[in-house]
């Protein structure tokens, strides 16, 4: 699981590089992506995904947690 999370992190870092097409407009595209709102955009955009992943993992491990602690 740790290796999977590490791979996903590396992939997301690689994907954070903007596209290279359109040399003329590229600086404006880069500026449009990396605004002061970048972190907020990233957070809000991935919030539903994070909630669903957290929920799915909670359902998967619920029985183990219950057995171990309750």
């Amino acid at each position: 699981m740790k290796r999977l999370i590490l791979s996903a992190g590396l992939l997301s870092g690689w994907l954070s590089q903007p596209a290279w097409a359109c040399r003329v407009c590229r600086p404006r595209v880069q500026a449009g992506i990396h605004t002061a709102d970048y972190a907020a955009n990233l957070l809000w955009l991935l919030l539903p995904v994070a909630l669903l992943i957290g929920g799915g993992l909670a359902v998967y491990f619920a029985a183990d947690v219950k057995r171990r602690f309750f």
Binding site: L45, L46, L52
Partner: peptide
Amino acid sequence: VAAKVNMYWDGVFHAGVWVMTVL
């Protein structure tokens, strides 16, 4: 420019759902 910025954020979204599918 606005379309390409949106394209970037669509890509971030797709990366997120890809991780969810792989998990």
